[in-house]
Structures are given as structure tokens and as C-alpha cells.
Amino acid sequence: MLKIVKTSIAIATASLIYAGNAQADINDALQNICTIVKADDKGELRRKMRRVQSDYNLKLKDYYTGVSCGGNSLIRTAMLNNSEETGTLMIKKMPRGDLKAPEKDGKTVLVWASENGLGTSPIVTALNDRI
């Protein structure tokens, strides 16, 4: 009987240690998302979004506002780097209401784009079509 109790405690302890190491922080999972957007790697961005959704049960709308690439949001970063494929993918994945909402600086993506001379960007066209 004592052997069974000791074995159960050992297994429980080992599983807790393993589970603690297996759980990575969401910040680690999103660490290179800015690089992916800048490189316009749509496939890698799609894989990253799927991985975050399966591991943390979060969709793009849940972490979009928390990610900043040099002070800009992900869609703004895509516009600045002419990353058309990743920019349009993010626009398709975001809810319309979130796309219309002002960002941290109080400006919507459309207002910001027109102020920065990016009004003719294909990403802005996709954004206008979506809104």
C-alpha cells in the first residue's frame, strides 16, 4: 500500500513539473510576429495564429491591441512595409468593429493611413472593402 502511495505522489510531482515547463508564456509565442509581418510571410503568420489559438485559445482580435511593432499596430506595420499579404490576412481575420475602432493613439487605421500618405495602399483598399 505504501509503495502505491509513493508511486502516485512521484507521478503527480513529475507531471506537475512537466506541465509547468510545457506552458510557455503568450509573449514568447508572439515574440517574432512583427518580423513575420514585416517579411510579408503569410504562411508563417497563419501558422503562428493557429498555434496561438490552439495553445492559448486566443484569436487575433484578442491579442492584436497588445502587440506593438516599433510603436505601430500589426496592420500599420504591414502598411509601412508594403506587406500586402499579411496585412490583408489580418484584415480578414479581425472583426469589422475592431477595424473601425480607434487604436492607442486615438486614430483609426484609415485615418492614420491617409495622414501618412498610405491611402492608396492595397491594404487600405482591402480595409475599405471589409468595412
Rank of each mutant, 00 (worst) to 15 (best):
V5T: 13
L30M: 11
S83H: 05
T65N: 14
V37S: 08
N82T: 10
N27F: 02
T7W: 06
L30F: 03
D28I: 13
M90H: 06
N21W: 09
M79H: 09
I17G: 08
P95H: 11
K104Y: 02
L99K: 04
G106Q: 11
K3C: 05
D25Y: 11
A29Y: 06
L80G: 04
R130D: 08
Q31K: 15
I11R: 14
I91E: 03
A14S: 12
D41Q: 15
K38C: 02
I131Y: 03
R46D: 09
G87L: 00
L80I: 14
A14G: 09
V124I: 15
M49S: 05
G87T: 01
D25G: 07
M79K: 12
T108P: 07
A22M: 15
L16G: 10
I36E: 06
S8Q: 11
G117T: 04
L30I: 06
K100M: 10
L80Q: 15
R130L: 07
A101H: 10
N21G: 15
R50Y: 02
R50D: 06
S73V: 00
K104T: 02
N21D: 06
M1L: 12
L118G: 08
D62I: 04
N116F: 11
S15M: 15
A12I: 11
A19R: 00
L110K: 13
E84K: 15
D41W: 02
W112M: 09
E115F: 01
N21H: 13
E103H: 07
L118P: 04
K48T: 05
A19L: 07
S121C: 04
T77C: 05
V111E: 12
K59N: 10
R130V: 06
Q31D: 10
Q31M: 10
Y18E: 13
V67W: 04
I123L: 08
P122T: 13
A22N: 14
R47L: 02
G97C: 05
S121I: 01
G117Q: 07
T7I: 13
Q53H: 14
T13M: 07
D129W: 13
K107W: 01
Y64P: 08
A29C: 09
D55F: 12
A101F: 07
Q23A: 15
L118C: 07
I123C: 06
N57R: 10
N57T: 03
G43D: 14
C34R: 13
P95N: 12
E84S: 14
N116K: 15
G119S: 07
W112G: 12
T7Q: 13
R130F: 03
T35V: 07
M94G: 04
L58P: 01
G66W: 05
K59S: 04
L30W: 03
T86W: 01
C69Y: 01
K48H: 01
G106V: 07
M49G: 00
W112E: 11
G119H: 06
C69L: 08
S83A: 15
R50L: 03
R96F: 03
K3L: 11
G20W: 10
Y64R: 09
K92N: 14
N81C: 08
C34D: 15
C34S: 14
G119E: 04
W112D: 13
A10V: 04
N82Y: 05
N32G: 11
S68W: 04
R50T: 00
V111N: 05
T120S: 02
K3T: 13
S8F: 12
I9F: 10
E44Y: 02
D55R: 15
K93M: 15
D40H: 10
E115V: 10
I36R: 04
R51D: 07
E85T: 02
D105P: 08
I36W: 01
G70N: 08
